[in-house]
Computed example of a mutant assay.
Amino acid sequence: MATKHPLEPLARRFLGKHPHQLEPEEIHVLEQMKKRLPVSRDAGDASDEAASFGARLSDRVAEIGGSWAFIIAFTIILLGWMLLNTDVLEHFGLAFDPYPYIFLNLMLSTVAAIQAPVIMMSQNRQSAKDRLAASLDFEVNLRAELEIMRLHEKIDKEIVERLDRILAGLEPKGTV
């Protein structure tokens, strides 16, 4: 005879499924219910625990590159570069990147070529974090629903037992 799965009673009682038909989130919720432990977790913390150095770096680059401080600083640097190479250094014949700023264009292209994939990596990580948050929300909602069902069962059982006691007290003394 096959051994019974430890989650089978809970799986059949609350979800109406065989344990082998359960989704990973459902298994996690039932295991936590069985142990009487909370199921809620912070999605940001769970995602950060699993993040690699590269993933955290891409988040930081996207955070900095998508800020007004970066845009303002970058604009000041570009204008300074142009002013330096057009007026100041050209006056002394020392301009290293005169108009049309070919070296500046190369540098801007290089920055864009590196920054775009890094920002996309960060967006992919954010999408994964959102999927994790949705999964964790599902677990919490499922746990709440199952606990409500468990409470309904307890209340229904108590009501039936109380009604039985009331009816037993009302029965005539000679009846079986």
Rank of each mutant, 00 (worst) to 15 (best):
Ala50Val: 04
Ala50Asn: 05
Ala50Thr: 05
Ala50Ile: 07
Ala51Trp: 00
Ser52Val: 08
Gly54Thr: 02
Gly54Leu: 01
Gly54Lys: 10
Ala55Met: 08
Arg56Asp: 09
Arg56Pro: 07
Leu57Asp: 00
Leu57Gln: 11
Ser58Gln: 07
Asp59Glu: 12
Asp59Ile: 01
Arg60Thr: 00
Arg60Met: 01
Arg60Asn: 02
Arg60Leu: 03
Val61Tyr: 00
Ala62Cys: 03
Ala62Thr: 05
Ile64Glu: 03
Gly65Ala: 15
Gly65Thr: 10
Gly66Tyr: 07
Gly66Pro: 13
Gly66Ser: 14
Ser67Tyr: 04
Ser67Val: 00
Ser67Leu: 04
Trp68His: 06
Trp68Leu: 00
Ala69Glu: 11
Ala69Asn: 10
Phe70His: 10
Phe70Cys: 06
Phe70Val: 04
Ile71Ala: 09
Ile72Leu: 15
Ile72Cys: 13
Ile72Glu: 10
Ile72Arg: 15
Ile72Pro: 14
Ile72Lys: 06
Ile72His: 11
Ile72Met: 09
Phe74Tyr: 13
Thr75Lys: 00
Thr75Phe: 05
Thr75Ala: 14
Thr75Ser: 05
Thr75Gly: 03
Ile76Tyr: 01
Ile76Cys: 05
Ile76Glu: 07
Ile76Pro: 08
Ile77Asn: 09
Ile77Cys: 12
Ile77His: 10
Leu78Val: 02
Leu78Glu: 02
Leu79Cys: 14
Leu79Ala: 10
Leu79Gln: 15
Gly80Ile: 06
Gly80Thr: 15
Trp81Arg: 05
Trp81His: 14
Trp81Phe: 12
Met82Gly: 06
Met82Phe: 14
Met82Trp: 13
Met82Thr: 04
Met82Pro: 06
Leu83Gln: 07
Leu84Gln: 14
Leu84Met: 08
Leu84Trp: 09
Asn85Val: 02
Thr86Gln: 08
Thr86Pro: 05
Asp87Ser: 07
Asp87Glu: 03
Val88Ser: 10
Leu89Met: 12
Leu89Tyr: 04
His91Asp: 06
His91Tyr: 15
His91Leu: 12
His91Lys: 15
Gly93Val: 01
Leu94Trp: 10
Leu94Glu: 10
Ala95Cys: 02
Phe96Ala: 09
Asp97Ala: 04
Asp97Cys: 13
Asp97Asn: 15
Pro98Cys: 09
Pro98Trp: 01
Tyr99Lys: 11
Pro100Ile: 03
Pro100Met: 10
Pro100Val: 07
Pro100Trp: 12
Pro100Arg: 03
Tyr101Asn: 06
Tyr101Pro: 00
Ile102Tyr: 09
Phe103Asn: 07
Leu104Ala: 06
Leu104Ile: 02
Leu104Trp: 08
Asn105Gly: 15
Asn105Glu: 09
Leu106Ala: 15
Met107Val: 03
Met107Gln: 10
Met107Lys: 08
Met107Gly: 04
Met107Leu: 14
Met107His: 11
Leu108Gln: 14
Leu108Phe: 01
Ser109Trp: 09
Ser109Gly: 11
Ser109Met: 11
Thr110Ile: 05
Thr110Val: 13
Thr110Ser: 02
Val111Asp: 00
Val111Phe: 06
Ala112Leu: 02
Ala113Cys: 03
Ala113Gln: 04
Ala113Thr: 06
Ala113Phe: 02
Ile114Met: 01
Ile114Glu: 00
Ile114Trp: 02
